[in-house]
Amino acid sequence: MTVRVDGVDYEFSSLEEAVRFALKMAKSKGAEVQLHNGTFHVE
């Protein structure tokens, strides 16, 4: 599972870890999280 934040990809071994990271980053940026074909994008 890959989480992309500001064009940088972060790899996670589990969906749970990836979701937690994506939500944490989105909250800190006041951004939204989108899921596309198994890849999260924080914008």
Rank of each mutant, 00 (worst) to 15 (best):
M1C: 15
M1F: 15
M1H: 13
T2K: 11
T2P: 01
T2N: 05
V3E: 00
V3Q: 00
R4V: 09
R4H: 10
R4P: 00
V5H: 02
V5A: 02
V5C: 14
V5M: 05
D6I: 02
D6K: 03
D6S: 06
D6E: 06
G7V: 01
G7S: 03
V8F: 07
V8E: 05
V8Y: 06
D9M: 08
D9L: 12
D9H: 05
D9F: 10
Y10K: 01
Y10R: 01
Y10S: 00
Y10G: 00
E11L: 13
E11V: 13
E11I: 13
E11Y: 14
E11R: 14
F12V: 00
F12R: 00
F12Q: 00
S13L: 08
S13I: 07
S13Q: 08
S14N: 09
L15M: 12
L15D: 01
L15K: 07
E16G: 06
E16L: 10
E16D: 09
E17K: 04
E17N: 02
A18G: 01
A18K: 01
A18V: 03
A18R: 00
V19Q: 06
V19S: 03
V19H: 09
R20E: 13
R20K: 11
F21T: 01
F21S: 01
F21N: 02
F21W: 06
A22R: 02
L23R: 11
L23D: 13
K24W: 11
K24Y: 13
K24G: 09
M25Y: 04
M25I: 10
M25E: 05
A26G: 04
K27R: 11
K27C: 15
K27V: 10
K27W: 10
K27T: 10
S28L: 14
S28W: 10
S28D: 12
S28E: 14
K29W: 08
K29L: 14
K29N: 09
K29S: 11
G30C: 14
G30W: 08
G30H: 10
A31T: 11
E32C: 15
E32Q: 12
E32F: 13
V33R: 03
V33L: 05
V33Y: 02
V33C: 15
Q34G: 06
Q34K: 12
Q34S: 13
L35K: 05
L35Q: 05
H36R: 14
H36Y: 07
H36W: 08
H36I: 15
N37Y: 07
N37V: 06
N37E: 11
N37D: 13
N37S: 04
N37I: 10
N37K: 08
G38A: 03
G38K: 07
G38V: 05
T39S: 14
F40Y: 07
F40D: 10
F40K: 11
F40V: 14
H41G: 08
H41V: 15
H41W: 14
H41F: 14
H41Q: 08
V42T: 09
V42R: 04
E43M: 13
E43A: 10
E43D: 11
E43K: 08
E43R: 08
